[in-house]
Design a protein around this nucleic acid. Structure first.
Length: 456
RNA sequence: GUGGAUGUAGCUCAGCUGGUUAGAGCAUUGGAUUGUGGUUCCAAGGGUCGUGGGUUCGAGCCCCAUCUUCCACCCCA
């Protein structure tokens, strides 16, 4: 039988020990801050019923769901017509009732509804788990990646939005990454659409605004026309498209322009509140209004937040917003939530590119014992035990291989101290300690050695 | 999902208009050095040239399909 080359599905990755140490540094930092602000973890299954997933992410999102084949004789219930006509979508629904989760927010909403009687509202939880999207992979875009979600549900206070921004600021300053926090509000977008008299074209208008920087005003206008937006509406939109000035000035101008729209005004008030509070609290990162921020997810209703690394071009590394009625789909109305999601994989790429990972010396082996053979091994094993008891990460080479090989192993593993215990040392009751960085070697007693390593 | 590029040793790559046995550096293994790594020297192992088909006397090179990775779009963390 021919040996097959092992591969993994495109867009997925293996993580080496070195990578995991770095990844855990990110996860640990994020978790620490989440808990600092009073959020506690939950987990949900990798698979959800398709019925809870479908229709929550828009048409595009449905296409990107990984579906899980039913177990057993999954073809038995398929309608032959659908199969014969190659109706992939219809057939898919007949042979699959589960799917891999696409994000953590929708499963969370499902969780809240299912456990509503046990939950103490407002419910502050975080969740760090992988999600899957059948997207075409690219740089910084994977088919399996981790999200770190924090949400608070059951409170419509804007203080929650402020707290989320504080946490963003806290986490990225701990990671030493300079970021820009962009803020928008779905109500402002809706207000703009209302003001120009094209309520139902909100998404098209938003996407057009989003492209302003890329393709320019003229093309944006002609694209709007293509989408069926009336000329009068486009005319009314011009002051917003060409708006200039500081954050405050823009908001003031918007306040004038959107006077006729109650929703729009509310969005502006909300944004002003959030921005003022954030300014009062002295958040380090730059926080700015960005009308182009649409965020495809359908369920946002208020604030929209997105974070970009200031020094690396990689797309957003954190995003989220307020969803007033996500639980409504699952039969629980009037519960507002707001949350954000940190993209661990992209943050990893950013830290890697900027060389911001710390030396995690407390995680790796500190002391390596050379193995000289049966008799020395017996003695060394006891020494090793004492070193470990002192809380020092240490290991003994499992076989009495050549010194060169053992030293090589220690060197590659970046172990700072190598301890050599042969017959001489046993007789003298000392350790020969080699500092791998300086190459110096000296004999010392065990207790002195332990103190030396601890002080290192 | 649409368009473009890419794939040769574990890694990074060379390989002429199609022509004998496909190369280098790094890495690996062994030796110089039977208690001393990171430097040096010597040697060895390692390839169905992404996969499948086609053209040809002959294909790593040309053609088709397919997959991978990357880039742009769509969308997104």
């Amino acid at each position: 039988m021919a040996v097959q080359k092992p591969t993994i599905p495109s867009g997925t990755r293996d993580f080496s020990p070195e990578e995991m140490v770095k990844r855990n540094y990110i996860f640990d930092t994020i978790k620490k801050v989440f808990q600092l602000y009073g959020y506690l973890p939950i987990e949900t299954p990798a698979m959800e019923n398709l019925s809870t997933l479908l229709g929550k992410y828009g048409e595009e999102g449905d296409k990107l769901l990984f579906k899980v084949l039913n177990s057993g004789d999954f073809l038995s219930n398929v309608k032959t017509d659908d199969f014969g006509n190659k109706e992939s979508n219809k057939v898919a629904l007949q042979i699959s009732e589960k799917g891999l989760r696409y994000d953590l927010t929708v499963p969370f909403a499902r969780y809240v509804v299912m456990h509503r009687n046990d939950i103490n509202f407002p419910f502050k939880r975080y969740q760090i788990q992988p999600v899957w999207r059948a997207d075409r992979p690219q740089r910084g875009r994977y088919r399996e990646f981790y999200q770190c979600d924090v949400d608070v549900i059951g409170s419509d206070a804007l203080l929650n939005e402020v707290e989320l921004i504080q946490m963003i600021d806290d986490i990225f300053s701990r990671l030493h990454v300079a970021v820009e926090i962009k803020l928008n509000n779905r109500k402002i977008l809706a207000g703009i659409a209302e003001m120009v008299g094209e309520d139902d074209k909100m998404m098209d208008i938003t996407v057009a605004i989003d492209k302003l920087d890329k393709i320019g005003l003229e093309k944006v206008n002609s694209e709007l026309l293509d989408k069926g937006v009336s000329e009068a509406a486009i005319e009314k939109l011009q002051p917003i498209l060409t708006m200039k000035g500081t954050q405050q000035e823009k908001l003031m101008l918007l306040r004038e322009l959107l006077q006729t729209s109650e929703t729009g005004m509310k969005g502006i008030e909300e944004t002003l509140y959030i921005m003022n509070k954030v300014a009062e609290l002295g958040v380090e990162s730059m926080v700015e209004l960005d009308l182009t921020l649409a965020r495809g997810l359908n369920y946002y209703t208020g604030a929209i937040i997105e974070v970009k690394a200031a020094d690396v071009k990689i797309g957003s590394i954190c995003g989220g917003g307020r969803y007033d009625n996500l639980t409504g789909i699952f039969g629980m109305d009037g519960t507002s939530g707001v949350g954000i999601s940190f993209g661990a994989d992209r943050i990893y790429d950013v830290l890697n590119e900027l060389d911001l990972f710390p030396e995690n010396k407390e995680l790796s082996t500190m002391v390596f014992f050379v193995n000289f053979g049966e008799e020395e091994e017996k003695y060394t094993l006891r020494v090793l035990q004492k070193v470990r008891k002192a809380g020092i990460n240490a290991e003994l080479f499992p076989t009495a291989d050549k010194m060169k090989k053992q030293m090589n192993y220690a060197d590659k593993k970046n172990i700072p101290f190598v301890v050599i215990i042969g017959q001489d040392e046993i007789e003298k009751d000392v350790l020969s300690v080699k500092n791998m960085k300086t190459g110096e070697q000296e004999e010392m007693r065990l207790t002195d050695f332990i103190m030396k390593v601890k002080a290192f």
